[in-house]
Amino acid sequence: MKGIGEMLNVENMVVSYGNIRAVREVSLTVGDGEFVVLIGNNGAGKTSTLKAICGVNSPSGGTVNLNGENITGKPSHKIAAKRVAMVPEGRRVFAGMTVRENLDMGAFLRRDKKSIENDRETVYELFPVLRERFRQPAGTLSGGEQQMLAIGRALMAQPQYLLLDEPSLGLAPIMVESIFEKIVQINRQGISLLMVEQNAFLALSVANRGYVMDSGEIVLAGTAEELLENDMVKRVYLGMEEAEES
């Protein structure tokens, strides 16, 4: 059941590793059903922000609120139980386990066998290649297939919020396009997305809203259209993309 006012709300979050402050007072929101992207250069603190939201790291300041409940600093398994799922950077599939077992791990907290089976079917329909390979160890899949598996695994948790960390990383352009199509499809099914992405143009072309991070701070926020038109974004992030692609 979703109500008005359900959202993921991060306020003044600080993440430190020793003396280094990777994230400095970051505030952002993801509304119900929204597709929000976090763009910025390598080392801007995007991944640290995601990890602190889902409890892999604990923030050293600020708060994370989920549908009005303070979840700041809770361990990741407790946050997972609140239907926040994460597709980690570099996919992190369980390489020695089969595709099917990876999907089972996604549904680890669920006991409703029947509906787990339905969801597995849904994932197989979204990514037919996973059905073909369900007995194969995940480590034998290609990079793109592993990314599909990582996304499918997260969907098996029936998330309300799905956090995606660099889903395009290391993938061939055709594969990136197809993965992004699926991500948009997932968002249309009503799952709220917060995606970290280095490929700013691609990210902004699919999202509703975006935040630009630099040196641990959010330097710009706006709708995707606004950011695509913004001079600084054009120069620093979109320009860089063109240079990279040539």
Partner: peptide, 8 residues
């Protein structure tokens, strides 16, 4: 870490 994200 990833197992934790699955709720383990």
């Amino acid at each position: 870490e990833t197992a934790g994200l699955m709720g383990v």
